[in-house]
Amino acid sequence: MYRLAVLLLPIIFWSCDPAPDDDATTTGESFDRGAMLAHWADDIVTPAFEDFRTAYADLSTAAGTYAAAPTGEALTELRASFTLAYREWQHFAPFAGVIGDEYRLVERLNTYPTNTDRLRTEPEANLQLPSNDDVQGFPALDYLLYGTDDPAEFSARISEIVDAVDLEAPYMAWRDGGRDRYVSNSGNSATASVDRTVNDLILYYEKQLRAGKVGIPAGVFSNGPMPTLAEAPYHAELARTLFLDGLAAIDEFFSSDPGLATYLDALSVEREGQRLSERIEAGFDLARARAEGLDADFATQVTTDNTALLQLYDALQANVILLKVDMLQALGINVDYVDADGD
């Protein structure tokens, strides 16, 4: 057994070739995480938040107009601003945790499937309660705007649902101090900004993008396809667009400079002769290519050709492994939010 060759150890060491990537790995200059955090905050999170905030304000105005006078024209206007705001949401949602989990924006704005029975029978439901996450947000609007015979019947509720979520408080908190605290928390503990952001982002990628938008409707977690669990099933032409928006948000975040890709490259992280950043980017590209060939509506896709959606799931899953196992290991990012001893 080779382990017993203690005495031959030096010979073994000098005769075996070091792995080819070993000589190339020279991490000369150190990587500036503070600059990366500032870039994330100012060039990604803030613009995404502002774009979404503007689109959501337009949605609120359109909903108000429609509630005041539910004309066909106002409905067209409202549906257009709904689509726009829902799309902007996909670009912001991965970073909602950076702004603060306490606002519960992901839960309140995009819990689906929406509960259509309760939407119809409980118009008084208190939208601040977590138990009512499934009768509000974009999924509820999707149903009321596209799934009912006459949306005008619900015009007041539509406006209430839109206005129930307040973006001003989180926006102000982020602008006045939140952003600065985020950027200055540049250490490497489990609660530091880099660690938290990356953990949040991977969680979003895993739960919302991979499972929520694709895996669950494709029946990965159940037996057989579940068209009713797809995103935006009533609009019927939006799910793929929303997915691609969400994927783009994560891909752009990963690849933007200075970001995770440049961080990995600065540490010369290579796996079997290829940069890990390239492997991950190739994974995003593959997922995008597979999604682009799908039906605009995933609820339709799972009933016509679910295999294609399962293939998209596999592409997304391959990158979960690269992000969660390989990238976290390479960057030394803590998975657990609470520190514990090691040895």
Partner: peptide, 10 residues
């Protein structure tokens, strides 16, 4: 160590 030490940049 090549993984752990660079992560202790601070």
């Amino acid at each position: 160590l090549s993984i752990w030490l660079p992560a202790k940049y601070d």
